[in-house]
């Protein structure tokens, strides 16, 4: 199990690096699926089997498919890939990378420096999760329902095609 964890972790990291380095959106999405699947394996090794399944279904399935649909609607071409390549200059990515590495270093330091008490990690099955979810976390579940509702309404409202340009600033810039 331990080996599986490390291999899956490595795959996840590499796939994610490839996501952020690729210029083609579709390629990036495929790497993203790989990354999600690898994380699902990590979940499995940690004993969260139900979460592994959810990760595959919702992240690697639903969300990625949703993004692909949108990409298809946007009708992207080879020029977009070229543009992506031209945007990715060292001057753009060096600064953020250094910042992130500092942050990562700090995180690592905090994780390593803090003495965590050793416990025997036990697998938690879906039943325990379900009992907790519909027990003490009932309110959270209901709030999630409201959030999803808001998401649906918001997406519908924003996604409507408006023939007229809505904003005068946008109108001017669209004209220029």
């Amino acid at each position: 199990m331990e080996t599986t964890f490390y291999i899956a972790g490595a795959v996840a990291v590499i796939a994610t690096i490839l996501v952020i380095m690729s210029y083609n959106l579709i390629h990036a999405l495929l790497y993203l699926v790989v990354s999600f699947l690898a994380v699902a394996v990590v979940f499995f090794t940690l004993g969260a089997t139900f979460m592994a399944a959810l990760e595959v279904i919702i992240y690697a399935g639903a969300i990625v498919v949703l993004i692909i649909f949108v990409i298809m609607m946007l009708n992207l071409t080879y020029e977009d890939v070229q543009q992506e390549r031209s945007w990715m200059k060292p001057s753009v990515w060096i600064g953020p990378s250094i910042l992130s590495f500092v942050l990562l270093a700090e995180l690592v330091y905090m994780v390593v420096a803090t003495e965590a008490p050793q416990t025997t990690g036990a697998a938690i099955d879906a039943k325990a999760v379900g009992l907790a979810l519909y027990g003490p976390y009932m309110l959270g579940v209901q709030l999630c329902g409201i959030l999803l509702m808001a998401g649906i309404v918001g997406a519908y409202h924003l996604g409507r095609q408006k023939k007229k340009v809505v904003h005068r600033f946008l109108e001017r810039s669209a004209a220029s």
Partner: peptide, 12 residues
């Protein structure tokens, strides 16, 4: 749940 909602609104 939050990610799902966020993605739908974000894509819109």
């Amino acid at each position: 749940t939050m990610a799902a909602a966020e993605v739908s609104v974000g894509l819109a």
